[in-house]
Write a protein that binds this DNA or RNA. Structure first.
Lengths: 254, 254
DNA sequence: TAGTGGTCTAGACCACCCG
DNA sequence: GGGTGGTCTAGACCACTAT
């Protein structure tokens, strides 16, 4: 084992590893070791203290190099246990051109999907909600927040707002919001989504089990009835490492 | 000024700021100060050494707190100058349901778009390229990589691969790849995109002028002719803080 | 030149996991 | 209990920016 260690982390290799600060050289050395398969998926790195000793740098410098690779998703730390090369999770694919519910979608691909409710309640609408859902003064809005879990892995956080007119009591929703809306004959038929990428904040990262700053897909969706009336306004945050959206495009009339 | 400093960073406030390590408390304090407008967009933070002194913690701890907020995109550091509250960049919106070229798209919204070529060349196709573009053995592929810049701000990195049959000499492409393909009557009419979020690696982050680990939208696109033949395979990486994709959905036939 | 962030050290102690 | 990562310190020097 000691041979392997010094082979990867020898001070000679670091000094010859191009320009830049020590932690950058060390980061590149580690990255390279993973890329060429010298360190394989699931492998444990040597303890930080050992790396520091063999590379002749301080432990703080080792941690800084590892910090960056954790932020890039290449390594994962497990407190009290060690640091490991990330095993890529198999990505869930979501068809962007179809409006489906999470529950239905996961069932269709044979995955066990469940949710943990974070919140259900009736509220006075925020200015955003009034604008987007077209609410009159004095009306209420139902808010439903949940953690989406597929095959026991947290996948997304979802905050939905529905006009109180269409869903007066959010407590009746147990699994699929869309199924409940369908029951009430107000299932949306069209939606507009806005997709962007964002670095996760502490609270969201905690719920999804990823490090602070991990990349997430942020999706805002507004769903409409056939009449053009807005029904639902949902903000979701998907784990970037676990979700793929697939969209089909056609040539655009300008 | 000193009053403001101690008002925000007093040790009392930190100790009363909930549970967790010092740098987490300090991070929350800073985050709160930004959220409630105590620190406004573009404002400079006090020097790290001053914060450390007033909060009665070491400078390393201050840096760790700031590190996290930089990773979340809330603060930006400028070497030799100071640390500042981020001014949000206005996001570019891209319609997902239409297949347009970057150049055409930016022109339509009145922005000055340009590109810097990172690479143009003819290569032996990779296994991926052979599969996706349906290349026969012995054929070549044109690769074009460029940095997309809108209003003097780097926005995306794009790596395009086109079958040599359709584009034997990539040097002829100067501005719009699609315009060139149209000239050759092989402009695609349909495409499939795969969208995910990822934390940027050093090289990409450097080109786009964002910190390592910043969130990016990763988009893989395969474009097809009317005949169903694949023309182009493009991998792009967009700055997550500067790009929004908008998609319209309709109810899906299962 | 003065002030700021960037890197780095050596050492300490805490918190968690596992045999 | 032994080993691992997590936090924290005090101090040093370097690199960049503004004036």
């Amino acid at each position: 084992m000691t041979e392997d260690l010094s082979a990867i982390f020898s001070p000679e290799r670091l000094s010859g590893g191009g320009p830049g600060p020590l932690y950058v050289k060390l980061r590149r050395t580690l990255e390279e070791a993973v890329k060429i398969g010298r360190l394989k998926q699931g492998d444990a790195l040597p303890p930080e203290r050992d790396i520091a000793e063999f590379a002749a740098v301080s432990r703080v410098t080792v941690r800084k190099a590892i910090d960056d690779l954790v932020a890039e998703g290449i390594l994962v730390r497990r407190h009290g246990s060690g640091t490991f090369v990330t095993k890529p999770v198999s990505k869930v694919e979501q068809r962007l051109s179809q409006l489906t519910s999470f529950t239905e979608d996961m069932a269709r691909r044979g995955m066990t999907a469940r949710s943990e409710w974070l919140h259900k309640g009736i509220h006075t609408p925020s200015p955003d909600e009034m604008m987007i859902l077209g609410l009159a003064a004095g009306t209420k809005v139902s808010r439903l927040s949940r953690l989406r879990i597929a095959d026991d892995q947290p996948l997304a956080i979802e905050h939905a707002s529905v006009s109180g007119e269409f869903l007066p009591d959010p407590a009746v929703v147990t699994t699929s919001l869309y199924a409940e809306l369908e029951k009430r004959q107000v299932r949306p038929v069209r939606a507009v989504q806005r997709i962007s990428a964002t670095n996760m904040k502490e609270s969201d990262a905690g719920l999804l089990g990823v490090p602070v700053g991990a990349a997430g897909l942020s999706i805002e969706r507004i769903s409409y009835l056939g009449s053009g009336r807005a029904v639902e306004f949902t903000r979701s945050l998907y784990r970037g490492d676990a979700y793929d959206f697939v969209a089909e495009l056609t040539i655009g009339a300008t």
